[in-house]
């Protein structure tokens, strides 16, 4: 089986890799690029732990092939903070104790980031539906939803 050579931008840096046709972005990130912040919870798009942002849209990295990503712009959890400064969502997740085990956290953060870029002032219901593709078994979602709403408020304030 031959491999495909793919050139992408990941978190602002040019990254090229080779992959088999059936290799997913999740496998490329974790196995080949050693970027293990993107988590593998199910491999079937049901848990959202591998949520990354490709060309501006949140997707499950387990449901994207590496081979189709030539020229793509990919954002992962490793690129969420700016230098040593955590993103407001990351800050609020810590302030609100929005994580217990933390395995789902990178996926939730990416999904929440994508949501707030599209909808800076979501209602609780909108947050809940936007995050419905991310499973968390520890928190019962309460503190996650609060953290996202609080981060949204803070981000609105800082841009206004």
């Amino acid at each position: 089986m031959s491999k495909y050579h793919v050139t992408t931008t990941i978190n602002g840096d040019e990254v090229d890799f080779t992959c088999y046709a059936d290799q997913t972005l999740l496998e490329v990130l974790r196995e080949d690029l050693n970027m293990t912040g993107t988590k593998n919870g199910c491999g079937s798009g049901d848990c959202g732990a591998c949520t990354v942002i490709v060309n501006g849209r949140p997707v499950n990295a387990c449901l994207v092939l590496g081979a189709e990503l030539d020229g793509a712009n990919i954002e992962t959890i490793e690129g969420m903070s700016t230098g040593t400064e955590l993103h407001p969502l990351q800050q609020k997740f810590l302030d609100h104790a929005a994580l217990q085990c933390g395995i789902c956290t990178p996926g939730f953060l990416n999904m929440a980031k994508a949501l707030l870029e599209k909808n800076p002032e979501p209602t609780e219901t909108e947050v809940r539906y936007a995050l419905a593709g991310n499973l968390c078994r520890c928190t019962g979602y309460d503190k996650i939803v609060r953290a996202v709403l609080d981060a949204a408020a803070e981000m609105r304030e800082s841009t206004s």
Binding site: T36, N40, I77, L86, G102
Partner: peptide, 13 residues
């Protein structure tokens, strides 16, 4: 906390 919101924390896999 910071390790878990940045993807640095190392889990089983």
């Amino acid at each position: 906390g910071p390790d878990k919101v940045t993807g640095r924390a190392r889990y089983g896999d």
